[in-house]
Amino acid sequence: MTSALRRLFVGGAFAVALLALTACAGETADAEPSGAPSPAASSPVAEPSAAPTEEPAAAADPTCETIIPETTVADYDSVGWSAQASPFTITGEEVPGGIECVWANFDGPASDQLHIYGWAPIDEATADEARERLEAEGWTVEADPAGVYVTEPAETAVATDENGYGITYFFEAGTVKIADTKQSILLIEWG
């Protein structure tokens, strides 16, 4: 073999070896060293589904502790007051799905110191009938952009707010609230 042919052969063999090394290096350059464990796969990525697999949780029923702010409940608890719940009624007729709560110190001496809060779902026809019954009994009806206030007659009110309102119902779309004063309606958060 001539020296020129030998150089070509050695050069070609060198080039092939270099290509082989480069190819192998490229394959293992991204791989972890053989002694190191490969990282564990993280939790699989959830594929979005076309339909939800669970029904949303239904809202809990209103309670004396949930229709008013937690801070108000805590204030009542701190002075020894508790709540007694009863069905929500308007002129003696029950409004299904509602609750009426009287907050007072039921363990202390008898007193007129109490607060009333209530909430109920109501349809428009039932609300209209209830307002008519209250108005027939002398209650005052006041329209408001947010709904309709219906307040007991001043001469029968045991306690009133700073504007002279005693027990008041507030009718708004789909709900009715009651409180011992018109101002206290603002504390009812349910619905």
Score class of each variant (00 low, 15 high):
Ser42Lys: 13
Pro44Gly: 14
Ala46Phe: 15
Glu47Pro: 00
Pro48Phe: 12
Ser49Trp: 11
Ala51Met: 14
Pro52Ile: 08
Glu54Phe: 12
Ala58Trp: 09
Ala59Glu: 15
Ala59His: 08
Pro62Ile: 08
Thr63His: 07
Cys64Thr: 15
Thr66Cys: 11
Asp75Val: 02
Ser78His: 04
Ser78Arg: 12
Gly80Thr: 01
Trp81Asp: 04
Trp81Val: 05
Gln84Glu: 15
Ser86Thr: 12
Pro87Tyr: 01
Phe88Arg: 03
Thr89Asp: 08
Ile90Lys: 04
Thr91Gln: 07
Glu94Tyr: 06
Glu94Asp: 10
Glu94Arg: 05
Pro96Met: 05
Gly97Phe: 04
Cys101Ile: 05
Cys101Asn: 08
Cys101Arg: 07
Val102Arg: 14
Asn105His: 05
Asp112Val: 14
Gln113His: 09
His115Gly: 11
Tyr117Gln: 13
Tyr117Asn: 13
Gly118Pro: 04
Gly118Thr: 08
Trp119Ser: 04
Ala120Leu: 11
Ile122Val: 15
Glu124Ile: 09
Thr126Tyr: 00
Arg131Met: 11
Leu134Tyr: 03
Glu135Thr: 10
Glu135His: 08
Glu137Ile: 00
Trp139Arg: 00
Trp139Phe: 00
Ala143Met: 01
Pro145Arg: 07
Val150His: 01
Glu155Met: 07
Thr156Ser: 12
Ala157Ile: 14
Ala159Arg: 14
Thr160Arg: 01
Thr160Glu: 07
Asp161Tyr: 02
Gly164Lys: 03
Tyr165Phe: 13
Gly166Ala: 08
